[in-house]
Write a protein that binds this DNA or RNA. Structure first.
Lengths: 101, 101
DNA sequence: TTATATTAGCCAAATATTGTCAAGTCAAAA
DNA sequence: TTTTGACTTGACAATATTTGGCTAATATAA
């Protein structure tokens, strides 16, 4: 159950790349990427997208980690967070059935 | 599976109150409350709190609807939204076990 | 019609997020 | 020990988003 930062750091290191190398490739300031990998900054949607593309495999894993981290952040200090999460799940499932109509 | 706006409107109408009456009670501009009840604006945490307090019963229901709506909003047009939601749930459950230590 | 309730549009103020720079730490190489 | 290179940190300006609330429009009912 990894967070987006961990995943990105592991992916980068597994390829032996430097922050500045990935940064150059994606026009992303290396210090910003550093923050992202330490979960100090949340990547924007575009950043998450281009990072997941860049690392090729595990695209969905990256996006899911990013999205789920945002969700956790949203309810992190709410007593009813978990309950709300379950309701939200049902709402999404319901919306899905609606869309197919 | 109601959204926050529906719930608030139903609660208000069930008590026969006007937007301006509830607004006056909570120092909330009636036009803002109108937007909230139509899901045009998301109430702030404080507004959600004071509204749930105001309506007394169903406090948790109001808060859960509010939080879950925010969560749904966060992933609404993401293909992986539901998958991310499930991961987020696990992350929260994990964080809970950590806190009790 | 007139009065009252609600909704819609708009925009300024407040708040939050983002990108970037300069300075800092740390470890390994020279 | 000094230097080098990779990364981290803190601060701040630029941007973007959210919020509150005004005025005007619309609806509903007497």
């Amino acid at each position: 159950m990894k967070n987006i930062g961990q995943i990105l750091r592991e992916l980068r290191e597994s390829k032996g790349l430097l922050l500045r190398e990935v940064g150059a490739e994606l026009s992303l300031d290396p210090t910003l990427l550093s923050k992202i990998e330490r979960n100090d900054r949340m990547p924007t949607k575009e950043q998450a997208k281009s990072l997941s593309d860049f690392y090729g495999d595990k695209k969905n894993e990256v996006i899911i980690a990013w999205l789920s981290d945002k969700l956790v952040y949203e309810v992190q200090d709410e007593d009813l967070g978990l309950a709300a999460m379950k309701v939200a799940e049902q709402k999404i499932e319901y919306l899905k059935t609606q869309k197919t109509k």
